[in-house]
Design a binder for these strands. Structure first.
Length: 334
DNA sequence: AACCGTCCCAACCGCTACTTG
DNA sequence: ACAAGTAGCGGTTGGGACGGT
């Protein structure tokens, strides 16, 4: 694993770190503290550049790093945070004690991204990937696909949750040997737990479309969303019906936010170019892009008083909406 | 046993943001 | 205000591990 031993033209070593190098770096930092990475390698007797030392320390040697598999709760948190922050791996890592941005980024790319794709969700937008769903062969899938097509055409008029549920059902139904309620629980992988968990949450969360309750609650807490023409609010106004559903708790799982559909190119472009925006722009985008995956849940609504007409005012606002609890999976899986 | 393809992740690269003078 | 140095971040790479044939 890792890279082949190499050395740069400046004589500095590159590639995987040896145990001896780790000891030198760790002992030096324990004695003198981290920082001044430019001079650290020379002082510590390492033939490495400061950048390499910093990365080794922050990604591997730091004593507070939690190693090992990501728990279900951690994965859930990562998906939630990614839906809010995009590929802001350092920001996500800051909210997951013991995990590094590099670790989370790798885990996202190798595990979670694939899982979302399997579920028929776009890993960038967290939206249903209607264009990418495979053609079905069963009558059930045909019917679901037809329903999806119809709902998609009428999405301004129908409950977006229904559209999301249908999409996920179709995606799950496309998977061979997909068992939603697996009796043979002896060897359930984390991936399988996720796949099994998704439809359960959908069942809990499905509820009649009620845009008025949404608007009322937000008017109470944050004065509601304005209809000003400021950047970002046009998107929100356009999606007013899209966001408008009840925020009441159902079965211990509170409301979910549904992302824009992939074929909404404006929204898709918005999310894909998220990283190129400045902080203010990003915070404005967050107000129109609070998309969680369908199987996530909050105990505090992301649309509560933390939200203003201009989106998040501070990172604390993001923290406040991330104070969610994860239902006990054992009741669902065992 | 040998080969091949895929997965995984540590480490690197290049860019941007921040700090300092 | 500006330039140079430094730190941090996100995307990408590459090679060992592993499973299938």
């Amino acid at each position: 694993m890792g890279r082949a031993p190499a050395s740069s033209s400046s004589g500095l070593k590159k590639g995987p770190w040896t145990a001896d190098e780790d000891v030198k770096l760790r002992e030096y930092i324990e004695r003198h503290g981290a920082g001044n990475w430019r001079t650290l390698p020379q002082n510590a007797g390492l033939q490495r550049c400061g950048k390499s030392c910093r990365l080794r320390w922050t990604n591997y040697l730091r004593p507070d790093i939690k190693r090992g598999r990501f728990s279900f709760e951690e994965e859930e948190a990562i998906i939630q945070l990614h839906s809010l922050l995009g590929n802001k791996w350092s920001a996500i890592a800051a909210r997951l004690p013991g995990r590094t941005d590099n670790e989370i980024k790798n885990y996202w790319n190798t595990h979670i991204r694939k899982r979302l794709l399997r579920m028929g969700l776009d890993p960038v937008t967290h939206a249903p990937r209607l264009h990418h769903l495979p053609h079905s062969t069963s009558h059930l899938n045909d019917n679901l696909a037809n329903l999806l097509f119809f709902l998609n055409q009428q999405q301004q008029m129908v409950n977006p949750q229904l559209l999301n549920i249908a999409t996920t059902l179709l995606a799950l139904n496309q998977q061979p040997n997909q068992t939603l309620f697996n009796d043979n629980s002896t060897h359930v992988s984390e991936d399988e737990k996720f796949d099994a968990y998704a439809p359960q949450i959908h069942d809990h969360q499905f509820q009649p479309y009620n845009s008025s309750s949404f608007l009322q609650s937000n008017n109470q807490h944050a004065g509601g969303f304005s209809t000003s023409s400021s950047t970002g609010m046009d998107d929100l106004s356009a999606h007013e019906s899209w966001y408008g559903f009840s925020s009441s708790n159902v079965g211990g799982c509170s409301q979910m936010l549904l992302p824009p559909l992939v074929h909404d190119e404006k929204a898709a472009a918005t999310s894909s170019s998220f990283g190129s925006l400045n902080n203010n722009q990003q915070q404005q985008q967050l107000s129109t892009y609070t998309a969680a995956t369908p199987f996530t849940s909050y105990t505090s609504s992301p649309l509560d008083s933390s939200y203003t007409s201009n989106g998040f005012s501070t990172e604390d606002d993001i923290d406040s909406i991330l104070n969610f609890e994860i239902p006990d999976l054992t009741e669902l899986l065992y």
